[in-house]
Nucleic acid binder design. Structure first.
Lengths: 136, 136
DNA sequence: GTATTCCTTGACGCCGACGTCAAGGCAAGG
DNA sequence: CCTTGCCTTGACGTCGGCGTCAAGGAATAC
């Protein structure tokens, strides 16, 4: 099949496929007229790449999976190098999620504090007195 | 004070300050010789920007806080526009954290499955038979 | 004077994963 | 023949937040 059909079947664009090829990730055979030519195996490679990309993997991180498939293994993650990428990604995700939760908590605190300071007294009720060390 | 001192006191670089000025975020008065001139108020504005940046706010998102401070309010988040940014950021963080947790779970599942398929039998023990529908 | 250090503006570089436009080739249909 | 639609390579643009270099002016120390 040609590049347009492969792109459509994988839900991506021809530009993306040429980009992958330029990165050495998905090289293509050539027809006599110079057109790129792909087969079902290439579609599987491409689907592997796209799946990992959707998970937020860098292109370079998908390379072990692609190499693994091309080496004849049944799945992209049948090779130790792919498992190593999985594990590294899990660590990255844990670290990132931890940071984001920390930031979320801090922003939440700031919002609560700012809202309190912005409402010195609500209509219909007395404002709570929350000064420190107070026995009035 | 001049740009170098302000940058150092805020823990950033002169390039960054000129960039902020180019974005209209932190304009500077000029001394007679053309040098940028800042005061303690500018340091406070800059600290506000830097704090939010460390939280992952875009530069544009810090603008309401800076405007609020410049309008004479005691804190950058004393204004409704700043609170709105806080709330929007909280929503963004919640969404992002949710996505990342989902991805983390999925990657974890893939890793576990791939590890299982990679170890058809451990040395020292019989491999667990987990085929479907089996009464041997 | 001169050496040093600060300051100025301007402009290009970077990163990742492509988007977009340009100029042209090739195949098929009418 | 002409049009349409696919394909080719090449090259520049995008986004954010600066880094880095270049060429030159200004203030201070010696």
């Amino acid at each position: 099949m040609r590049i347009g059909e492969l792109a459509e079947r994988a839900g991506t664009t021809t530009r993306t496929l040429r980009y992958y090829e330029s990165r050495g990730l998905l090289p293509a055979r050539r027809a006599e007229n110079g057109y790129r030519s792909y087969d079902e195996g290439d579609l599987r490679l491409l689907q592997q790449i796209r799946t990992l990309q959707e998970f937020g993997f860098d292109l370079e991180e998908t390379r072990p999976f692609v190499d693994c498939l091309r080496a004849g293994h049944p799945a992209g993650d049948s090779c130790p190098a792919s498992l190593a990428v999985y594990r590294r990604k899990l660590d990255e995700l844990d670290a990132l999620i931890g940071q984001l939760r920390s930031v979320r908590a801090e922003v939440g605190v700031q919002l609560a504090r700012a809202e309190l300071e912005a409402s010195p007294g609500l209509p219909g009720g007395p404002a709570p007195r929350c000064e420190l060390g107070g026995q009035p």
